[in-house]
């Protein structure tokens, strides 16, 4: 079969490059996770008001922050793929989506775990939790749309448009949920109401960095699989040592 090489040139070189980068991201993420969790669980002091239960926020806060950040990055990649017609950026967008959904889910789960001792209920209609839930829906919509379309090109372009519409909507949704929450006098509890201890800050930042590196490592691994899947008919994929084996 004839192959238009010019279009596939970029993914082939990218594939090799990220193959070398992934171990670095993965290892540094793992080490930082260990350090962060150690500081978080053994060094940081017990909180005066919240007791030991507050320690879940060392996972909750990084996952919440990153779940929103990853959505924006994903929408950015998707938009790039749509506007400049670069296949690789669309692949990056679809590689980021499951990780983003996982982060949103973890953030909800840890939020519920934290909420039980704090509020006495697994779920409270707090503005942040509600927005996080909507964010999870947006991720699921993106993934579902991509899964429903067989033609990868249409899937990329359609889900890119959805991601852009979603990212325009995210601030509106967040604002409206906040507005709704204040009207109904919901139980918004501030996480960082008390001044944070230095060790808490260290643990938080280490965990944030670790999660970030985890996101990079995992999405790069996933984008490698996506590249292999989409380019399976090309010569360079058949020539790869891991494929010919």
């Amino acid at each position: 079969m004839a192959i238009n090489w010019f279009k596939y040139a970029a993914p082939s070189s990218f594939y090799g490059l990220i193959g070398k980068m992934i171990p670095w991201f993965a290892w540094s993420s793992g080490i930082l996770f260990i350090i962060g969790l150690y500081i978080g669980f053994f060094v940081a002091p017990t909180d005066v008001q919240q007791g030991e239960a507050y320690r879940i926020m060392f996972i909750h806060v990084p996952t919440s922050i990153l779940s929103m950040f990853v959505y924006l990055v994903m929408a950015g990649y998707a938009a790039m793929g749509l506007i400049f017609n670069t296949r690789l950026s669309s692949m990056m967008a679809s590689a980021l989506a499951p990780t983003g959904a996982l982060l949103a889910f973890l953030s909800l789960w840890t939020g519920a775990l934290w909420g039980k001792p704090m509020w006495g209920a697994w779920w409270v209609w707090d503005a942040r939790l509600t927005s996080e839930l909507v964010l999870l829906f947006l991720y699921l919509g993106f993934i579902a749309l991509q899964a429903a379309i067989d033609d990868p090109r249409r899937a990329d372009r359609a889900s890119a448009l959805l991601a852009i519409v979603g990212s325009v909507n995210v601030p509106i949704i967040y604002f409206s949920v906040k507005w709704w929450n204040t009207l109904h006098q919901g139980s918004t509890v501030k996480f960082s109401g008390t001044s944070m201890h230095v060790a808490m800050q260290q643990a938080m930042y280490t965990m944030l960095l670790a999660c970030w590196l985890y996101v990079i490592a995992v999405s790069l691994i996933r984008v490698r699989s996506i590249i292999l899947e989409r380019e399976r008919n090309t010569q360079w994929v058949t020539d790869l040592p891991e494929v010919t084996k």
């Binding site: 079969m1 004839a2 192959i3 238009n4 067989d150 033609d151 990868p152 090109r153």
Partner: peptide, 13 residues
């Protein structure tokens, strides 16, 4: 002009 449907190249040049 080249046209493809999915992975399949229909015609080129």
């Amino acid at each position: 002009l080249a046209c493809s449907r999915g992975d399949h190249l229909l015609f080129s040049e």
